[in-house]
Write a protein that binds this DNA or RNA. Structure first.
Lengths: 202, 202
DNA sequence: GTATACTGACCAGATAGTCAGTCGGTAATG
DNA sequence: CATTACCGACTGACTATCTGGTCAGTATAC
């Protein structure tokens, strides 16, 4: 909370922009500096090294991400699941930034196998989200809205794999991604049939 | 099929090893050369540029991948789906290389948003695999083994997102990944309940 | 004055790519 | 058979460029 926090925030934002534009593999200190109106030296003034900067950036990213997902305090379990899927796969109400955001996240994830700190952070985050999903399922079961024979943890693992896989798909394949089809399948097959127990016919 | 194909094959193998060891972001021509007993110059002799090499490597990778997945000519639709999920998520019978292979694939995928050629290739591959899944589902429906009200394309999109999401999870999170849980959920929820129509109780 | 935010010029190391030239084999020539 | 010419595979040394990082110095605020 020092008075120079505005610079640090600007650096985070510039890092985000540079990451979106060039990808993790081609991310340079210069490309980050080019994304804001200060110099490259200033980045080194605030952060000791590139690694240091990226660690800070990760904190920043994941903070935003968790906030985004947990921020939707819906009541109806079905709606909550749908909304979460929508946020993860299609992106929040941020508009077009969402895709860039997911792209940046994917670049970071791909780096995790070579970076233990990053891996731990992502693992913690993952566990948190699965718990969130499982809790929603349990809520729905207690309300008599969901099939009780579905294991909440199992469902959570599947649900999360599906929506994250779809997210990655959207980022990697762009327009060629079958996003609509996946979303329809999540709504129809995962939520309506498995949990609610409706028999959908044609 | 020129007589110098052994060198090109060796370069592909070295690229694979280097990619697994260093990740896409830290992949250099030297690190590739270090993985085999020839010189860095030879790589440039066979491939014009790093981009050229990586394009060729991609062809090579995806060829192997498709071969791996389509190679299992099972008959029973349920078994075919299970086997595909197993290959994609856990890895084939290659032993420990599978995880490295998936790691390399993820690194490549993360690069796709910045590389049109790569994106097209992955998109084609994706469409192929979804067709394969949908065909299996149709087979099962014709044999009266699967619920006919499930849309094959929709199911294929969901199934693929789920198993690819689980694969990415395994690579990114390592031991912390809930791989067993996802596999159980795929078997139980996606295949048994949705397609076969069994009501699994506790 | 002096502490903080900030900059441009600079440096050492790494990186992709080049180039002249070696080496082993093979085909043509006598 | 011996000699020559040639060719593709291959190499080590080199270069231009880029990258992370440093540092001396400027400007502004208190």
């Amino acid at each position: 909370m020092a008075p120079d926090d505005s610079s640090r925030e600007a650096i985070m934002s510039a890092t985000f922009d540079a990451l979106c534009e060039h990808g993790y593999a081609n991310l340079t200190m210069q490309s980050i500096a080019d994304e804001f109106d200060k110099s490259k030296s200033l980045i080194h003034y605030h952060y000791d090294s590139k690694d240091d900067l990226l660690a800070a950036f990760m904190d920043h990213l994941l903070e935003n991400f968790v906030e985004m997902v947990t921020g939707c305090g819906g009541q109806d379990p079905v709606e909550e699941l749908r909304r979460m899927a929508d946020i993860v796969v299609v992106g929040a109400d941020d508009g077009n930034d969402a895709n860039d955001f997911h792209t940046a996240l994917l670049g970071l994830r791909a780096q995790a196998p070579y970076d233990e700190k990053l891996r731990d952070q992502l693992a913690r985050n993952d566990a948190r989200i699965r718990e969130l999903i499982a809790d929603i399922v349990r809520d729905g079961q207690e309300q008599g809205q969901f099939d009780e024979s579905v294991d909440p943890e199992e469902f959570a693992a599947l649900f999360r794999s599906a929506i994250e896989g779809a997210q990655a798909h959207g980022v990697v394949l762009g327009d060629a991604a079958p996003t609509d089809e996946v979303m329809a399948a999540v709504d129809d097959l995962l939520v309506d049939r498995l949990l609610v127990g409706e028999e959908g016919g044609e």
